[in-house]
Design a protein around this nucleic acid. Structure first.
Lengths: 163, 163
DNA sequence: TCTATTTAGTGCGATTTCGTACTAATGCAA
DNA sequence: TTGCATTAGTACGAAATCGCACTAAATAGA
């Protein structure tokens, strides 16, 4: 078909946008006061991907401008949830390490979310999520690869990793 | 299974979060300077759902706090893309009407996006998007319905419509 | 009716996001 | 080695998001 009807694309991206807002609100309702989703995501990245990551690695992973990651990490450091130290391999750079408090905070947040996950697992056919996950991953990779067609401003070029 | 492994949920919501960021960046690259995705979404809602909608209807549709919608609409009004008038049926309320400029802006933005949609349609199996759309819709509705378990702050309770 | 509760919208301040511009360090190539 | 382009991070300001508190209008209930 030569048709270029944007309805499908608008529909998919619209649903994704609303799900993102709703799921973020759910996450944040379970986080301690003052901690929001990006903070949790950063802590989680250090555990799941690599403790001691550089700020740029994390900015790439989350597809946010590096200034945004600087701000997020400074908040975490202020709360002593991470420790930002010089990168011994590159004196321009830093390394971000979890503190014990940061690790405990992340573990507790996940524990506090389990009731929500239980509700979701009980009320929504989990197999359907299993089915769409590879499509979402491929779509994310596709968008990520084709993003570079437009010259990025401050947003870092990514390697496609995620946290 | 009694297992409550959050990996699947984290995976799905993580991909959705990144796709939201990437698609938003793509959208905004095609919008006129100073206009961002929420502005376009508001204009689009007026066309696709109901011109003359109230700000609260729109806040509900997009799942954002009403103060956020007030701000968004004030920007659109400042650029004379919408006209905000009193609601004849409710003197607390307002009605938001598209101007000719607003309609033209939205049409042009969609036209400017068609190359991106073409790239997506050519490089990604559209059938896979067709397959996941109903799952995304059901997931959005599920999250929307179960959101009310926690007492919302300023975020309006929704009727599930989207724009 | 009359009173209490709910609802729509705004004012305001705190925080987040992000673009631009800058410094410092690295890497590459002549 | 030297010089230039690239990269990591930060400073700064503009805009967006959002929670809280408030006013005014509508609605529900006694």
């Amino acid at each position: 078909m030569q048709e270029n009807d944007p309805t499908l694309f608008f529909g998919v991206f619209n649903e994704i946008g609303i799900i993102e807002q709703l799921s973020r609100a759910l996450f944040e309702a379970r986080l301690p006061k003052g901690l929001i989703a990006p903070h949790f995501a950063a802590l989680s990245h250090l555990i799941r991907v690599r403790d001691g990551a550089t700020p740029m690695e994390m900015a790439r992973a989350f597809q946010v401008p590096k200034t945004t990651m600087t701000h997020t990490l400074s908040v975490l450091a202020k709360h002593e949830l991470v420790d930002i130290r010089p990168n011994p391999n590159d004196r321009r750079s830093k390394c971000v390490w979890l503190t014990d408090a940061g690790r405990a905070m992340r573990d507790k947040a996940i524990a506090d979310m389990s009731p929500d996950f239980r509700v979701l697992a009980d009320g929504f056919d989990t197999d359907r999520l299993v089915e769409i996950l590879p499509v979402l991953t491929d779509l994310r990779v596709f968008l990520d690869n084709h993003r570079n067609a437009e010259p990025p401003r401050d947003r870092p070029v990514t390697d496609g990793k995620n946290g």
